[in-house]
Write a protein that binds this DNA or RNA. Sequence first.
RNA 1: GCGAACGUGGCGGAACUGGCAUACGCGCAGGACUUAGGAUCCUGUCCCGAAAGGGGUGCGGGUUCGACUCCCGCCGUUCGCACCA
Length: 818
Amino acid sequence: MTDHTPRDGSYRPELIEPKWQARWAERHVNEPDLDGAGRPFYNLMMFPYPSAEGLHVGNLFAFTGADVYGRFKRLQGYQVFEPIGFDAFGIHSENFAIKVGIHPGELIPRNIANFRRQLARMGGMFDWRHELSTTDADYYKWTQWIFLQLLKAGKAYKKKAAVNWCPECKTVLANEQVVNGECERHPGVLVEQRFLEQWFFRITEYAGRLLANLDDPSKMDWSESTTLAQKNWIGRSEGAEIDFAAAEGTIRVFTTRPDTIFGATFMVLAPEHPLVEALTSGGQRPEVEAYRKAVAAKDVVSRRIGEKDKTGVFTGGYAVNPATGEQVPVWIADYVLMDYGTGAIMGVPGHDERDFAFATRYGLPIVRVLAGPGEDPDAPLSAAVPDVEGMHLVNSGQFSGHPAGEGLRAIVAWLEHTGAGKGVVRYRLHDWCISRQRYWGPPIPVIYCDSCGSVPVPERDLPVLLPPLEDFRPDDTGVSPLARHKAWYEVPCPACGKPAHRETDVSDTFLDSAWYFLRYPSTEFADRPFETGRTGRWLPVASYIGGNEHAVLHLLYARFITMVLHDLGHLPFEEPFRKFRAHGLIVKDGAKMSKSRGNVVIPDEYIARWGADTFRMYLMFLGPFEEGGDFRDAGITGPRRFLDKVWDLVDQSARATAIGGELHLPVVVKWNQTKKRVSEGLEHLSYNTAIAAMMELVNTLREANICERRIVKDLVVMLAPFAPHFAEECWEQFGNRTSVFDAAWPSWDPAMIQGAEVEVVVQISGKTRSKVRVPAGATEATVVAAALAEESVKRFTEGKEIRKRIYVKDRLLNLVVG
RNA sequence: GCGAACGUGGCGGAACUGGCAUACGCGCAGGACUUAGGAUCCUGUCCCGAAAGGGGUGCGGGUUCGACUCCCGCCGUUCGCACCA
């Protein structure tokens, strides 16, 4: 009747793990009814990029932690959908393919097959029916569709923008590939800046909403660190735009400190500022031209970092400070960036470090407009004065004497009244450039026609397939390799039918990953990106677990795309991830695992030696899940020994014929406490303490020589999220014919969390001197009496007056003697 | 530079809302079983001290009957952002 693995006394993961993996597949255990689930729970983890090396320990740590949570929810009675897929487009795959000289179209499926094997081996609860890869045409067809929706809605536009160009690779680099202004692969080769027409998404239009939702608990429950990273990235700042009139035109500046306007003694424009031409009277000043050229030659990254030295050139032009009515000189300098604010600032050297450095270097006047009580407003300054509590305005005309905060409001009101400026809110967030001059990505579905201009590819013609290209390497034209494929490149215009050509850039990988979670439940629908009923039932995602390295870009882009699709009527919600938790990082020997350090741990050999269950438990035990930890192979014996012990307990328990006598109360208490601690630990992703609690229970049972079936069965169920194969085997051992995941999560009896007696700590003047055992809930008087009877307490109280008593019920008594 | 998190035995880490610091695990030491042990089981394991007792959570101060926990100032580590006006 039973077909369970014969027991020879020892735990053999190499036998039971394949057995249960096969059975889960056969019985469709991990495939929830997507159309009928009554308590759906969408358990999402960040899908991996399928590298040639395979999954490393860090991936497995993240996936296991997410899988444990999903299995826990399953045991709590939810129908859990836990899909997995592959983020297989992008520069990583492409560069690796170039390096080894194998086409990514050949390499990626191979890598995916390896990943699939590893993921199955770790015992993840994946619903393989819904696996996807962003490189599948029936996936990226919809990535292109999303682009078209944004284009139609006016949320996508084209403009010239700077890209990093490596003259040695003869290709465009991503910002991450630029190290100290040099190409990552060609040290010593300076990266140049080139300007190309590129596609952008108007994410800045959504900055306010993206920011506001972060503080809306009805929409989002996210890790605090992640929320904060997003806030900083969006970077809201309140300030004012102020117009300075010049003969050549109005110069509008943005400032967060309009109250310091009386101290603005010069202006600085970004070198690219459109008004520079006019100010120099059309190139009359060669030094300005030279400076602009020098700045333009710098790469995008080093323009932004390092170089604290302020350099700049006077344009020859002047503008009027609307507050003082004085003429101030207009300069250009590369510390002012065209893509923030208005690309122009008012220089307030008295109160801004950068402006101070600049003014000092070029001999510009420095005026103090903020001072503390009793400070001489006209004393020379040796540094910019920071705004501190209690300062007031000085040298500021009718506003002198106002406290700083109030002065700010008064000046903004006055600027608005005179029409010289207005209060505004600015964000640091930039529009999202999605163009990549590369091969390995979804072609951007646009066609260029001499008569009609840019024409979107009609939706019925999607997908625009990525054509097979023998030589997919980028070349020195700065144009995607796709341009070389004549048959693909040249197409008739969809609008007028005349000869036209395709957009040759592909889209950013982040666009692929910005919507994959929408696709998972609907992978079998060929005619739409996501099916309405499925989407309504399963989304927003109930739990999303991933790395904090994606705290900003991926999570922000996914939120943005969801919000746009919501606004366009395609989705009933605007936030995609109800709950997000960031897992920690696994380090090895105190350092982040990386190929260059040579400390990457490949999990396969560990799993082969110890089994997936032991490995999973080890990963979850080595530190708090949200903090990560240090991978040392020595520690893995602990969890393995623990499983061995449980194995023996189950064996004894399943064979024991007679039900033991009355259980001792302390054991019952421990049992209930364990259920409580494990349940709470799992809910808070405190996996290491949940495991510790189970270890304690096992120690207690072994010491008391108890193998009570009710307790051991509960233990097996609680162990199931961590060690699923092991738990299934034990469950079967108890004679069950169904999956342990169809069992109910054990509940605890709140009345049995505490024993009949408790140990109360007795302190004398805050120092622990003794402990007394008293009935739970004992009154203060009882405890005091018991305490005073103790020899060790008497010694310290005898002959002394007890001045104060502090009693914390069932915990502690503190007698303060004088 | 700005922001955030963190700092506890030989090691990874635990400690609810301010209430027994070091749970759980690794390692180590001693013992048992054994032809053997890199298996298993038992005992011990923060420091000083024979004990009584004292000290102890990066350093210095503070609040409190009581501080790993709260406050102030340093030092250090890690992670973000990085000329954002």
